[in-house]
Write a protein that binds this DNA or RNA. Structure first.
Lengths: 179, 179
DNA sequence: CCTACATCGTTGGCGCGTCCAATGAATATC
DNA sequence: GATATTCATTGGACGCGCCAACGATGTAGG
């Protein structure tokens, strides 16, 4: 069948992102069967492991944007998996709580995901699986550090230019800028 | 800072997809500077390596949907990086050709991506980089094989459900068929 | 020849994940 | 108290991966 350009297959970033596509599909198939998606699982997991939390905290723990937490919590609440109640101690916050049904849902998803790991790592022997996991974890840790561009408390200008400045002007519509 | 749930960090699928996010961001930052995106690079790479091709063929090589190829070619043509001409031998097809400007653009992107690989693999020593690449390549190959569920010519297999009901279908999950 | 069928390009649409900007309420800091 | 910060929410954007359907064209079979 048609070959893929070596310029792609030779690059770790290609291997990684393409394999991630497969991982994502396997996962989606997994919890898609119970009407969930990635964001739901993340939040349920965080609530289970750390207890009730504000939405902002959930976002920090799960690497999600606040606004996406809002939507996910809406959906989870509709399904009865979490409850959203105002925090009396800080009226800006919502306390998000895991319900029993939510706990059950979490376990179901988690189980489905265990199977997914196996499908994903498919042909690798145990040792290689461990090696791969270790290397990935190491890189991920590396890339997450230094990601908390803290506003520095106290006037720490970070020259946050919207930075649309694109060179080859052309027609394009480049965007990007993640802080 | 806030911890991430172990239910997530313990899963290879999580490590993979999250790291892919970083890889994707690094890449985007890379060619975003020249008004390109992933799809563009894939197509330029395929044209450079295998010569002029039809859009369908490009889609097969680059793991892209035909419809997405259309859009990408539109954009590349606007920028003068490829030319789209009808194929006289088969009037269904378009021959897509790489221009000189396109070739230069490809080289620019490719160079930027080399830097990206280095940033991505950051703290890993050469040996680990190699190991990781090898494992990823192996898994990717594994997951790409068996993806060409061919309609078998004659009489349609595949009950082709609207794609949600994919219930306990067991492993297979009737996957795609790109190619 | 004529009828199926497959392929190609195109349009239009969906879902998911990631992100940003801006608003209004509440709180923290000075 | 004035200012800055945090929080939830809305509304939007973009990339990537898909799918369905169309009309035009090409290929096989009977």
């Amino acid at each position: 069948m048609e070959e893929t350009p070596a310029r792609l297959t030779a690059k770790p970033s290609w291997l990684l992102t393409q394999l991630a596509v497969h991982a994502h599909r396997l996962s989606s198939d997994g919890f898609g069967e119970m009407g969930a998606r990635g964001y739901h699982f993340r939040i349920l997991a965080a609530l289970d492991e750390f207890g009730a939390a504000s939405q902002a905290e959930l976002g920090r723990r799960c690497n999600m944007d606040r606004s996406d937490v809002v939507a996910a919590i809406n959906e989870l609440a509709e399904q009865g998996f979490v409850e959203r109640t105002p925090d009396p101690d800080d009226r800006r916050r919502n306390m998000v709580t895991l319900t029993e049904a939510g706990d059950r849902q979490l376990r179901r998803i988690d189980q489905a995901l265990d199977q997914v790991q196996d499908d994903l790592l498919g042909p690798l022997p145990a040792e290689d699986r461990q090696t791969l996991t270790r290397l990935l974890a190491r890189l991920l840790t590396h890339h997450q550090r230094g990601e908390h561009r803290q506003p520095t408390t106290r006037a720490g200008r970070a020259s946050s230019l919207p930075r649309s400045t694109r060179s080859t002007g052309g027609t394009a519509s480049g965007r990007r800028m993640q802080q």
